[in-house]
Design a protein around this nucleic acid. Sequence first.
DNA 1: AGAAAATCCGAAAGCGGTTTCGGAAAGTTC
DNA 2: GAACTTTCCGAAACCGCTTTCGGATTTTCT
Lengths: 355, 355
Amino acid sequence: MSDKPISLKVLAAHLDLTVPTVSRALNNYADISPATRERVKRAADELGYRANQNARRLSLGTSETIGYLMPRFRSSIAQPFVAQLLQGLGEALSKRNWDLLVTHAESSKDEMAQIERIVRSGRVGGLVISRPLKNDPRIRLMQDLKCPFVVHGRTGASEGYAWYDVDGEDAFITAVNHLVGLAHSRIAFIGAPLQYQFAQDRLNGYQIAINANGLDVDPDLTQIADFSDDGGEIAMNMLLDLPQPPTAVVCVSDTMAFGAMAAIRSRGLRPGVEVSVIGYDGLKFGIHSNPPLTTMAQPQAHAGRRLGDMLLAIIDGDDPAKHQELQRAQLLRRKTDGPFNAAAQTTVSFREEYT
Amino acid sequence: MSDKPISLKVLAAHLDLTVPTVSRALNNYADISPATRERVKRAADELGYRANQNARRLSLGTSETIGYLMPRFRSSIAQPFVAQLLQGLGEALSKRNWDLLVTHAESSKDEMAQIERIVRSGRVGGLVISRPLKNDPRIRLMQDLKCPFVVHGRTGASEGYAWYDVDGEDAFITAVNHLVGLAHSRIAFIGAPLQYQFAQDRLNGYQIAINANGLDVDPDLTQIADFSDDGGEIAMNMLLDLPQPPTAVVCVSDTMAFGAMAAIRSRGLRPGVEVSVIGYDGLKFGIHSNPPLTTMAQPQAHAGRRLGDMLLAIIDGDDPAKHQELQRAQLLRRKTDGPFNAAAQTTVSFREEYT
DNA sequence: AGAAAATCCGAAAGCGGTTTCGGAAAGTTC
DNA sequence: GAACTTTCCGAAACCGCTTTCGGATTTTCT
């Protein structure tokens, strides 16, 4: 191993050729004789030559890099997916030797400035945006900048750009129907702030299924809280304080469901017995919760890979509108979905008097 | 917002100045009059000028980028920290507008090639390496390449390079002492493959504390398994199958502890009653396990930030050996550490006969 | 007022690659 | 053996920005 990275110039001098000739030899140009091409290549990896990427990309006029904006988060429990997503993106990019640039921002305003900077300065040739808001300014910005991008999730108006999403509406219809099948009729919803489109989608699914089954549409049964386990706990406590508490609850995420279960247990009730709980995400960890959490599992494994492939295709000129992929979540039954029974309800009433 | 990013050239033409003059004006050179400097800057952000980074860095001869090698992993539950670490790194870098490049590799061999490529091609000015092996070839490689780096964790011989680590030996001494204080005497260890230095450190701490307290050094009480919840479960089952099973166990990670608890529960025993369990990591999620997991919590929040600051300092010329930071983990008592009692042991024996 | 010192900007070269173009040497055709 | 192709490489220009250097213009000093 050497000290300074060796440049094309020294490689050329070493071979007694000119710089452009060596460059073309390494890039398999047809106007270089096979003999010298081989000679050049051999020398190149004997000396451990690596083209300087800043120079190369400047010349090529491309960054060969895509950017990933890390979702902002407070709760440290909230981001189990980024590692997996980054790995998938990396796999997609590595086929072409593209790089992955990861940035984060403190505030939404910072984030806008960040985006504007990294695309205008030519640092990235495309961006993946995650967890979009209902009406996300980042998408407008990217369109104005004419920079390719894909979205992990969707906004309210999802036409005209590329995205990969899991159908939250469908998932919550499935979840509610499942609970109805277990004879529940007072089914609550614990949600996240509706500025996030995914929160709205899942609420929509909940409402659709409630109506379709002809159940109560009691607005008190819909609780919106902070997107964290603490938020879930607070929301569940609100629900349990209702004159007529629900016998089942669907939660917008597993993390919130864990909080909800804590609230349930703290009142001497048993998740899956007195109160059924269904989460969303399919976190592996749910196996270890108390009791193991029934959840709508999303096929998370390939998201990164798919998003990377889509973005690359768009950068190559594909129409973004052609790349929209909607996956379905599947009910993963563990131990928190139980049948409605009147005896359990007695327990609830008893608890209320007792408190 | 415009179409093509505007270059220094068009900005200069717009101002009726030459390119170098505009460049120096923007970079606050003293030989540019304050008047024109202001004029230039105003025009620059009116037109939304952003220096092309490839060009800038080529000229400057620096990449202004550091790389992060994602740890390879199979189990999707195993990486709760990367998001937090990346965020911390990002914060450290953003003060100087450096970029963060994230790469991953399939195999160790690929990883070595990756490293060699990204540093020789001038893509990164430094690297952060995580979860090192006892004798990690990546460190030798980085030293040979004369490229600045910091390690998240330590290797066996930890002199001469920069690292940030949490003292696993100390943590396991604390954990074992705590259990001894609860009158346990048969204390087991569930570990990960010893090729990882952190696994060795934690085992060392366990052994030191066992000896210091004059307890059994039964080799059967040390179980090494896959670094996952399943691994923890398998290991715990081995321990419970022993003629004389342990009454307490320390686990090398929370994730493995969750698996261990599953094994304990599956035999009708109660973690924290018949068998005490102490994990390591301090995952927030442990609040929701069954029962809530007592653990050695590591101060994870600032790791990324510190690693970033250290690496930047080294790139600036600091001696790497000066930057070695050892943090301590703290016992976080939840519900799985209980006192030894003979009655519980009776239960265990009973269970054995019963099976 | 003339010389010396400051002030301010343009010219030129360079960072390390890539691509276009032209021409010498070699090979082909009659 | 002359004319025509083909093969193969060097010369030159460029990507967009930075830095050194020199010189014209203005200011300051006596």
